[in-house]
Design a protein around this nucleic acid. Structure first.
Lengths: 323, 323
DNA sequence: AAAAAATATGTTACCGATAACCCTAAACTA
DNA sequence: TAGTTTAGGGTTATCGGTAACATATTTTTT
């Protein structure tokens, strides 16, 4: 008990015993057992961040934002990676529940994550949802302006003179994929361009393979002159697929996408993108989470929508034949 | 107790009570408290991975390798990021000790990490050191062939006809930085090129700023025609600094470096690099760690040295004036 | 049918910390 | 001087599991 008082600076301790305790702690390399403490305090000072793709710079940057903010508030952060896979996500939720994290920053794999989020709700584990909304779940959110951003990207292509614009989208059980699709449609509608379903292909956000449809696009009667990819990895996959087929970007075909790549890594940023403030996704989300844990937040769920920024680079240009 | 037996499938339980317990568990959304379990079992099934730069693709790829292997063996993995900072590293070690991780995969910030590793040793926490050796610490290691790889990179430059080759190195309290420097010297020596200390500059591995010395290099009497950077981020920093000064790579100056960038991210890999098998660093390290934890390893420390692969790309070419 | 063995479940103590309460000696008050 | 504070520190119970042992049923053996 006396030791506990010294460690936590609580109660009254004479300077002499305090010193003695500290010295013995030093001698024995004593480190308090945080599990024992958590067991009685019913609080772990551990938070958890679940992302869907640890190789995507959007998420690693987000992770840094979350970690920095957690650290500053005296929390440790546990990372997890669901790989866009509901089964892994479920395992991760089990783990979070059994380790009794004080809260979770949750980037859901998709609409099917509702079940997992409800598990958290039932156990009263506070959480904040990042990046993707999940129908049926009321909670704090930090989101991007997927619809708006998509519209702006497509409008950028329209402004350049494109009229046949293909879209490569994510799985339709992911809210951002739906909204980006909606933004795409909206831009076409506003410009009075007829919608051609043959130009739209949905693959997973990480589907680097499965680019066979590119052949269909290219060999179509009226092939597209531009492609809007719903995220950064899809754009890369498309560009690689085009290169294999000797299609030049942007000379033959323009490509734009959502999400940038890490600035620290890219030497020659090439893609025209809607850049999302990834770091802020993490730091703001963490802030909301900590407020909620500490009871500083009202009952009503809060929703933060972060604007994206249109960054025009070389991958988008006027369609062939147009000056 | 009966519940415990059902959960762990130990002892004898009648099918009827087993079913009853399971049903009630379901109803109550019961999840066992892993802290309580760890407290009595003196085992957490949690491992810890400390890396020095979470934004570097070398480490994130390594992290995946470690995570996959941990997962397959029934362990959870906690990530930490020291930012090449001894103070943060120390905090992290404290955290590891207090959370009672069963073991640690440790990428040390430098020679000063010895103190932290000794803390782990004193508490009998098994660990495996990744990427960098720490003088005075005996332990399992997974390392790259820094010296060898550096020599090959420099020899590649020599083969192209370069004789004035600058080196931008990491902090000299990091073993890989020393070895890469040694490899550089060795290559020069083998080729009978006199060593010019004016061509060598040491900055931190993450020192993206502090590229002022580039001016000195360029304005020198006999400026270098090639630069060997001790890691990927240094190479990027150098190239950026060169661009600002209108020096073209590789036309005016060749640049090569250790460590590749994530293949998934780079659209047009440009740099000539010594690529290290980052994923294997993580997976092999994890394997060593788990063997040690489970007592399957002999007392003697094991040391795995993974070869790097010379990947020649566009950033290296013959010096100006040479065909 | 009594003893032995097997099966199914219950008890107790403990892991290492902390909350809540208790105790002792010195210092202070009336 | 007796009574009351106060400082300093000790005790006990508890968090939620599990090891080790104990008990109560059946089933099997002789």
């Amino acid at each position: 008990m006396t030791v506990s008082r010294v460690i936590n600076n609580t109660g009254r301790i004479s300077e002499s015993t305090r010193a003695r305790v500290k010295q013995v702690m030093e001698e024995l390399n004593y480190v308090p057992n945080s599990m024992a403490r958590s067991l009685v305090k019913q609080e772990t000072k551990m938070l958890s961040l679940l992302i869907t793709d640890i190789t995507n710079p959007f998420y690693t940057t987000l992770a840094r934002g979350a970690e920095d903010t957690a650290m500053r508030n005296g929390y440790k952060l546990l990372f997890g990676n669901s790989d866009e896979d509901y089964a892994k996500e479920r395992d991760y939720v089990d783990m979070v529940l059994s380790t009794r994290a004080d809260g979770v920053l949750f980037a859901p794999a998709g609409d099917g994550s509702a079940e997992h989020l409800r598990m958290l709700q039932r156990r009263n584990v506070p959480f904040v949802i990042l990046d993707r909304e999940v129908p049926g779940i009321e909670a704090d959110h930090v989101l991007g302006d997927s619809r708006e951003g998509a519209r702006r990207l497509v409008e950028h292509l329209l402004d350049l003179g494109h009229t046949r614009i293909a879209m490569v989208g994510g799985r339709q059980d992911v809210s951002t994929a739906r909204l980006r699709y909606a933004g795409y449609l909206e831009a076409l509608k506003l410009a009075d361009i007829p919608f051609d379903p043959a130009l739209v292909h949905d693959v997973g956000y990480t589907a680097v393979e499965g680019m066979a449809f590119v052949d269909d696009l290219l060999s179509a009667e009226a092939p597209p002159t531009a492609v809007f990819a719903a995220n950064n990895f899809l754009a890369l996959a498309v560009i690689r697929a085009l290169r294999v087929r000797d299609v030049r970007v942007p000379d033959d075909l323009s490509v734009v996408c959502f999400d940038d790549f890490g600035e620290s890594i890219a030497l020659d940023p090439f893609l025209t993108v809607a850049r999302q403030p990834a770091y802020e996704f993490g730091s703001l989300g963490m802030q909301l989470l900590i407020e909620r844990i500490q009871g500083a937040a009202g009952a009503a769920p809060r929703k933060i929508v972060l604007p994206s920024e249109l960054v025009v680079r070389q991958s988008s240009a006027a369609p062939p034949g147009v000056v």
